[in-house]
Structure formats: C-alpha cells, structure tokens
Amino acid sequence: MRALWGAMTPRGKALLAILVVALLLAPLAVNRYLLSVLTLILYFVYVGQAWNLMMGYAGQLSLGHALYVGLGGYVSAALWVHFGIGPWLGVFPAVAVGAAFGAAIGWLGFRFGIEGVYFALLTIAFAEFTRIGFDHISFTGGAGGLFIPYEEKRLGEWWNLRGGQPFFYYVAFLMAAAGVVIAALLSRARIGFQWLAVREDEIAARALGINTFRAKMKAVLVSSGMTAVGGVFYAFYNNSLFPAQVFDIGRSIELILAPIVGGLGTIFGPVIGAFILTPLGEILITAIDRIGINAPGVKAVFYGLLLMIIISVVPNGVWPWIVQRFALVKRQP
C-alpha cells in the first residue's frame, strides 16, 4: 500500500486525496438522484476493475461478465429470500459459485486452446445459457424474477445490506476503493507481471518458465469472484433480479466500457472511464425524457458513438493520456 502511494507524484496524491474526500462528503451535498448516479458510477468502477484484471492485465477477453454479476446476485438473494441467510454470509457462496463458473469457462478455454475471439464467444455462450437456465428455475422465480422484499423495520441492518440511498452509496464507495486497491496490489505483484507476460506473448511467457494455464486460471478466478461480489450489491440495491435483465449481453458490454474508455491495463482507467460514461449516459436519458421522445436503445447508440470517438482520439484510453499530459504518476526509473 505504501509503495502504491509512493509511486504517485505530489500532484497525483493531492488529486486522489481530493477525490476521496469529495466522494466521502458527497451525500451531504448532492440530492438523491445525483447520489444514485454516483452509486452507479462507483459500482461500474468496481466491476470494471474486476474485468480489467482479466482483460487489461492477463489479456483474456470476456464478453460474459454479466454471468458473474447475475450468479452472485441470485445466490445471495435466494439465500436471503428462502432461508433468511444475510448477504454478509451469502457473499461467500456467491463468490464460490461465480468463481466456479469462471473456473469452468477458464478450464475449457485454456485447456483446449480456445483463444481470443473464440474465448470471448465461449464467455457469451455461458452467460446466455445461464440466462435461459434461470428462466426455468422456479426456485429463483424463473423468468418472472426474484424479489427481495422491502421491509421498513430492517432498514438499519447494514450487515444485511438493508438501508437507504446514502447507505448503498457508501457500500459502493467501499467496493470501488477496495477494487482499486486490489487491482493495484495484484498488478504490482509477481502474478501481475505473469499476467502481463501472458497478455503480451504467451509463447515467450512459457519460455520464461511461466505456467500460462495457471496464470490465466488465476486471472479468471479473481475476476469472476470479484464480479460476483458486485452481483450481491446489485441484487440488494435493486431488490429484484430478472434473468433477461441481469444476464443480458448488454449488461456485459456496459460493464467493460469504462475500462476500455479509461484505459485497459491501468489502475485508474476503469475509474475515470466510469466517471465519464455513466454521467453522460444519465444526462442523455434525462434529456431524451425531457424532450419527450421514446427511444429505447438510444443509450447503446450513444455509447457506441462515444466509444468510436474515444478509440480514434486516444486509442490507449483516457487515463494514459492524462498521466502523460499532467504527470500524475512517477515515470518508471
């Protein structure tokens, strides 16, 4: 942790400190709607970090991360609804199930040499058939959805993730902060370097003694497990889960945009990406609402356009450009 802090220039440290303080004080200053947007941003920071570890660092493209969100959400919500087991405990089986699916996909893909786009297709396939599966599992409400009842008397039970908007905001903040720290620590550890080697050139990585299968499995396990925690948050924040919604490929795409826009394989890329994209999307929807046009899918079109612009202007993402422009992180020796 100290090494992470030490790697930043005074200017970078100051900006980070200001950002953290501003986010901590935000509930005092902004209204409920803005707080919900901020909560959404921080949620995307967190899941973006999880996805970025797998793609940005280890170079394994997953287009099915909604699978882990959905599984984490469904496991924890079902345990709560049916057995009264709170998410503070339910998060563990949620992570286990998410990571187990991650392990299955990883094993199939890496063991049989399914790479790149084909691996991405495999991740989509798993998310899709899980969606169809959940449509038919009556235990979790099938296609009709699973609902977490809103109970006034439980509102203070933070360990059960019951609370108001400010409460969920702070939970999202903690998750985002933890996600950043986890990603930063892993990327600077031995495994982080092994991931980079795998991403850059797998044959060369093996020639340096790296068991690339194991390194990729670790990436997928960490990423899917982390994302499942995001799913627990998603379930208890929204209080409802529908297979067609949570497992939809749109959710998977939404989740990967922030790291792509912000900068793949960087710690602050997913952060800055989420802070750019989510508010723009919300502004767009509000604006469209005001004008009174009913245009479903307009957000997707907008994100698509934005992605094209950003990729053509700053192909490595916004964060690397900012770092260079404003000298926030010390140059490597």
């Binding site: 031995r190 080697a197 850059e200 050139d201 044959i203 060369a204 340096l208 790296i210």
Partner: peptide, 21 residues
C-alpha cells in the same frame, strides 16, 4: 519475441521473477 508494450526492465523482471517472488 519481446513483450512489446512493456519496458525493457519489466521484460527482464518477468524472467527474474521465476526464482524470486
């Protein structure tokens, strides 16, 4: 087959990490 987008030092560090954690 260098790791193209990594620094020279990081390239060699990855090798050195084989027997150093």
């Amino acid at each position: 087959r260098p790791f193209p987008s990594l620094s020279v030092e990081d390239n060699v560090t990855i090798g050195a990490l084989l027997h150093r954690s």
